[in-house]
Design a protein around this nucleic acid. Structure first.
Lengths: 228, 228
DNA sequence: GCAATAGTGTCTTTCAGACAGTATGAC
DNA sequence: GTCATACTGTCTGAAAGACACTATTGC
């Protein structure tokens, strides 16, 4: 790092959040409507400026809390590549650090959040968003797809108790691809620590009730779940 | 992104480079000796401040050029998670965007580079580096390991012409693990577009000469090369 | 011929993909 | 019993891991 004497111009750092969930058979993202220019009235990813006294990851957790009421320590937050093109924000030079957060199907975006009018939108119907948030969202979705292959992150889309069918559904919705339920069950079952049975069952309108599971202690899947 | 009125304090963004190569049977990183405080005399990753008129990726390419003379467009540059803890730089608030660059075994760090005294060091003998560069280097090495699994990036460690043995050697050095040459040959051969034969051979002091290859057009490996 | 390294072939096991059948609930 | 959904079992083919053999050079 060279210590070069140079005029220091205004440069700000923001944190943006791509909070994904699976709702109503679709992959959805939490968006807020912008109240001010630029892009007034357009939807955008929630986010805010980095404070001078906080770490970047802290800022992401704080924003998550403010927007959704969720505790960042309980949700997996994954940092994505920064976006820092000079013209990306008309107000000046802003470099943003985007984060991917994976949330279970929340009842509804929590009221009292920082930006009013927060709501879920399907990721494939979100464009056009403010700034370069379409690009950020695209990167977030692709990252989520890759993470499902090698990690147990898919369980974070589910509540504390879920069925194997719920979990398979997450994969199908995120990957946009049907999976064979029998092969999926076998794969999940033989991956040590992916899920563990709670003993409970979930009845439904019709058919046999499904057994309930919770997350196991494993974080990575080996061998990986294959997408192609 | 909320538009919040607040006092703007001094915040700078830097780009740091973890330039890795395989030299003398070891994974090595390009380091520079710091000429100024803080950490004067300590080794550090090369890097520099982001200019107001350039994109972050541009800054990384520029630094790479300045430090090594290498063209960033010809080398794969991969962005790593930012490091932005408040106390990481004693001079003030500095958020850094680290990049992983993968280079062939260069003759020697190019003279005329920005920081004098640039040199290769084995990654496992580099600590302690200045700032939090030990952590950054650790992330870079782990990223390189993962990338070898699913991409053809290993060829970037080699020159334009290389043998299958050279390529296997890259994997062995980065993964710190011996690989079976026969299984490795089969795997590389049956992965379409990984390498293509040039027709040439490379003689050596003893034994049968090895056939030469160049990079193929494939960028991803499917199925992946497995590490475990 | 020998030494040394490059490259090929074969067997076995693991595991994904495809598909048929059984189990458990509500009515 | 029927219907609907959950779950289990079996066959097949692809590919990784382990290991023995042949090929091509210099001497």
């Amino acid at each position: 790092m060279t210590s070069r004497a140079r005029k220091h111009e205004d440069l700000r750092v923001t944190v943006d959040l791509a909070i994904l969930t699976v709702r109503e058979e679709r992959l959805q993202v939490l968006l807020v409507e912008r109240g001010n220019e630029p892009y007034q009235g357009r939807l955008a990813l929630p986010g805010g400026f980095l404070r001078v006294d906080e770490d970047v990851a802290e800022a992401a957790e704080r924003e998550l809390k403010e927007e959704t009421g969720l505790d960042g320590r309980s949700l997996p937050l994954e940092q994505l590549p920064v976006f820092g093109a000079p013209g990306r924000d008309p107000r000046g030079r802003v470099v943003t650090v985007p984060y991917l957060a994976i949330a279970p199907d929340l009842p509804v975006p929590v009221a009292g959040s920082d930006a009013s009018g927060a709501r879920w939108e399907p990721v494939d119907a979100a464009a056009p968003l403010a700034f370069d948030h379409d690009d950020i969202l695209g990167v977030a979705v692709e990252r989520a797809r890759v993470m499902l292959e090698r990690t147990t992150i898919a369980t974070a889309f589910c509540g504390t108790e879920f069925t194997i069918g719920d979990l398979r559904h997450v994969y199908e919705v995120v990957w946009q691809r049907p999976l064979d339920p029998r092969n999926f069950n076998r794969k999940v079952g033989q991956t040590e620590g992916f899920v563990e049975p709670t003993g409970g069952k979930r009845a439904q309108e019709t058919g046999r009730p499904a057994a309930l599971y919770r997350r196991g202690r494993a974080t990575t899947l080996y061998p990986p779940m294959l997408r192609e």
